[in-house]
Amino acid sequence: MKSILLHLGTDPQFESRLQGALDLARFTEGHLECLQTRRVPAFLGADAAGFAGSAAMVVQLMEDEARLAEAERKALSARLQKEGVPFSFTESLGDPAQTLVDRSLLSDAIVMSIASSDQRELASTLAAVVTKADAPVLAMPAHATRLEVEKPVLVAWKPTPEAAHAVKRSVNLLQQASRVDIVTIDPSGTGDLPPTAVASYLSRHGVRAELHERSSGGASTADTLLGTAKELGSGLLVMGGYGRSRAMEFLLGGVTRRLLAASDLPLLLAH
Score class of each variant (00 low, 15 high):
Lys151His: 12
Val155Glu: 07
Pro161His: 00
Val155Cys: 09
Pro161Tyr: 00
Met140Lys: 07
Ala163Val: 04
Ala144Glu: 10
Ala142Lys: 15
Lys168Asn: 14
Arg169Trp: 08
Lys168Tyr: 14
Arg169Thr: 09
Ala142Phe: 11
Ala135Gly: 07
Thr160Met: 05
Leu138Glu: 03
Lys168Leu: 13
Glu162Pro: 03
Ala135Val: 08
His165Ile: 13
Ala166Pro: 01
Ala156Asn: 07
Ala163Ser: 14
His165Glu: 11
Met140Tyr: 07
Pro141Glu: 07
Ala156Thr: 08
Pro159Met: 00
Thr160Tyr: 00
Pro161Ala: 10
Ala164Trp: 03
Asp134Cys: 13
Lys151Val: 06
Ala163Phe: 02
Lys151Leu: 13
Ala139Gln: 09
Lys158Met: 09
Thr145Ser: 14
Ala163Gln: 05
Arg169Ile: 00
His165Lys: 15
Pro136Cys: 07
Val171Met: 12
Pro136Gln: 11
Leu154Gly: 07
Ala163Gly: 03
Leu154Trp: 00
Arg146Thr: 14
Thr160Arg: 12
Met140Trp: 07
Glu148Ile: 07
Leu174Pro: 01
Lys168Gly: 10
Gln175Glu: 11
Lys151Met: 11
Pro159Glu: 01
Thr160Gly: 03
Val155Gln: 02
Val149Asn: 09
Pro136Leu: 09
Ala135Gln: 05
Asn172Ile: 04
Leu154His: 04
His143Ser: 14
Val171Glu: 01
Val153His: 11
Leu174Asn: 02
Leu147Glu: 11
Val171Pro: 06
Lys158Cys: 05
Leu147Asp: 09
Ser170Asp: 02
